[in-house]
Design a protein around this nucleic acid. Sequence first.
DNA 1: CGGTATCCATTAAGATACTG
DNA 2: CAGTATCTTAATGGATACCG
Lengths: 121, 121
Amino acid sequence: MPDTAPEPLRMTAEHRELLDQLLDKWSLQVLDTLCERPRRFNELRQAIPAVTQKSLTTALRRLERNGMVTRVVLSTRPVAVEYRISPLGSTLQDLIDRLYHWTTTTLPEVEAAREAYDRSE
Amino acid sequence: MPDTAPEPLRMTAEHRELLDQLLDKWSLQVLDTLCERPRRFNELRQAIPAVTQKSLTTALRRLERNGMVTRVVLSTRPVAVEYRISPLGSTLQDLIDRLYHWTTTTLPEVEAAREAYDRSE
DNA sequence: CGGTATCCATTAAGATACTG
DNA sequence: CAGTATCTTAATGGATACCG
């Protein structure tokens, strides 16, 4: 095996598009919230501050379509709808945790950089 | 030290806002490209397919403001401008690599999920 | 070369009202 | 309860022209 660089790892448009659909403002929070435990629609609304009904619906539909989230209709009276992270979606959990952890450790430096930038320009 | 769960890890609006500013479509690609090596403005345009001048400028300014990227004016004739990943920005490199790697392994399953969703609804 | 400025089209978000 | 439908407004993106 003469070559240790195994793949070009070309980032195609499809790969980026997928990240775009999962890493936006609301989807990230939905995924993070559902990783904890399943939630009903209105529970998600409460758990995610400032999300509107419309934005939440849009994010959920897209996450469902991409196989990240499962929509379960419970046959209670009246019917309830529960959203769960899918097995595929849970493979993202570790990465989301790392992203959030990165922001907590980095934010102070970022804020210093912002202040320096705003002062100079 | 009786408690092994050290922090609530509350995700505040500031943390999410930071991720929003770094994980968007163009910024992610700019960071990824600059992690490889420094680039000039027009080199970035070529390296990132379909990016417009305006979108690239916007992304660069924001990354610069957040301390992720450094803008270096080289005193050549005529002057050249080089963008480099900053030390702070390079702490994101590993996470970006993981994200991209995740998409390459996951995309087939995602596409299957999309087809199933589009067929059923 | 590395941008800014401007205008326009498209998209996303917000508010509100209504429904099975 | 869990949405959909509609309307309005705000943000984003692309095209083009120009500048130091």
